[in-house]
């Protein structure tokens, strides 16, 4: 048996992609996509407020995304995206060099709940961090903490303890080095853009990180960033060197580009409303949809 590469990720199976726990509970697919998208952004925002390195945040987002997949995955009828996001962060930081207490996680999520969504401008979050001053009552804290622990166990169980994540960030930089671009005057712009694409991919409704391996993600990010910056890469099919064929590359580039249009669309759909991040909010949203159909 070949040893799994340390660079590889466990990927979603076809069956897991075909049907989710939420679909079995009759949650419309578009609603599930919206909640998952908002949940990934929420996780990213919480990670920033908790001052976590992007690698740890990315890992939490991937754990969050894995949880919902497959008929045996978590359902929005049973779990709110907010609690799953919080537990994903809690779980991920626990194994990292940046463990966070249940207290700080509860506070940060309460704070994020208090600001209008969606307005998670990452720069704003970084500069106007008021989460530290945000407290919940002791009673609320105790309930949320228990909730956090219970959700943590459910995530571990649903994932079969498969928290292993390898990320394309470091790979992306080393590929750029291999492609010899760092002598280029605008190399840092290229690297920045490629990294930004990798962050964008975390939010992808197509679940790019759950369906493609880090080398291909890094390759697609570089390809697109090079096109955008007009920096010329070697005149050969260099992506094959990074284990990505033309077809996969094409798919990933399109997927990357589509995240932005999806985000715009979401903004339009949810204008003035909050994406339902709890079980109750999802129920209310379903009722509202039924009512407007009548």
């Amino acid at each position: 048996m070949q040893q799994p590469s340390p660079l590889a990720n466990p990927l979603a199976t076809v069956a897991q992609l075909r049907e989710t726990g939420s679909q079995i509970d009759n949650i419309p697919r578009d609603l599930e996509d919206s909640v998952r998208f908002a949940g990934a952004q929420l996780t990213q925002a919480a990670g920033i407020l908790l001052r976590l390195p992007q690698e740890v945040i990315a890992q939490a987002i991937i754990v969050f995304a894995r949880f919902w997949l497959g008929p045996e995955g978590g359902s929005l009828a049973e779990f709110g995206a907010r609690q799953v996001s919080a537990a994903s962060i809690y779980l991920t930081t626990k194994l990292s060099a940046y463990p966070k207490s249940p207290r700080s996680i509860v506070n940060v999520y309460a704070y994020l709940d208090s600001i209008p969504f969606p307005s998670f401008e990452t720069d704003v979050l970084r500069t106007e961090n008021k989460a530290e001053e945000y407290y919940v009552s002791e009673g609320t804290y105790q309930t949320r903490k228990l909730d956090l622990f219970e959700t943590e166990q459910r995530i571990l169980k649903v994932l079969g303890f498969q928290l292993q994540v390898s990320l394309p960030y470091a790979l992306c930089i080393t590929y750029l080095q291999a492609l010899d671009v760092f002598s280029h005057p605008r190399a840092s712009e290229l690297a920045k853009r490629a990294t930004a694409h990798l962050n964008t991919a975390l939010l992808s409704p197509q679940l790019m990180y759950l369906t493609h391996q880090p080398p291909s993600l890094a390759t697609a990010a570089i390809y697109l960033a090079a096109k955008e910056t007009g920096i010329k890469l070697p005149d050969v099919e260099w992506w094959e060197v990074f284990d990505t064929d033309r077809e996969e590359l094409g798919f990933l580039v399109v997927a990357l580009l589509s995240v932005e249009s999806f985000a715009k669309e979401e903004q339009k759909v949810w204008q003035g409303k909050k994406v339902p991040m709890t079980v109750e909010a999802v129920e209310a949203e379903l009722k509202r949809r039924h009512a407007s159909q009548d």
Binding site: P4, L7, N9, P10, L11, D243
Partner: peptide
């Protein structure tokens, strides 16, 4: 091709 399997509930 990188192989690292998948995940499934306990």
């Amino acid at each position: 091709r990188f192989e690292a399997g998948s995940w499934a509930p306990c």
